[in-house]
Design a protein around this nucleic acid. Sequence first.
DNA 1: GCCAACGTTGGC
DNA 2: GCCAACGTTGGC
Length: 152
Amino acid sequence: MNYWLFKSEPDVFGIDHLMKMPKRTEHWDGVRNYQARNMMRDGMRKGDLAFLYHSNCAEPGIVGIVEIVREGYPDFTAFDPDTKYFDPKSDPDNPRWYMVDVKFKRRLERTITLAELKEHPELEGMPLVRKGNRLSVMPVAPEHWEFILGLE
DNA sequence: GCCAACGTTGGC
DNA sequence: GCCAACGTTGGC
């Protein structure tokens, strides 16, 4: 089992939106970064767990846990000119972008803020706390996963 | 709203 | 293949 982290903007699609979806499940579309794409297409397995992180908001931080319930498949929003994720270079016969389905597992008892995560030398290796990090999907080392849950 | 950091694009 | 220009992300 592997651990991951998904960023989302709570104003666009946050944990409150996910909780209200049918089966509390939604496809994680719109990722348009090759590193992130590779992780969703090749790395994530059914049953893997991931932190849900809220970015671009008053209190950026980890707010909950989701589970991967469907492994990588083509991101169909790339084929639809009516969506803002449309990418004419993604061919349905050779899709450029992939997504997974995630299911709400639980909220954390409190938001573990980015500021707090940065205070712990144990987490220095995390891409999330590195300056200028812009990856919207990233792996979480098991020891970091456990450590963060211990902060809850 | 500012701006640093980053990924992508495209000219050469 | 290099690299400057550009657009975007995201913390503050």
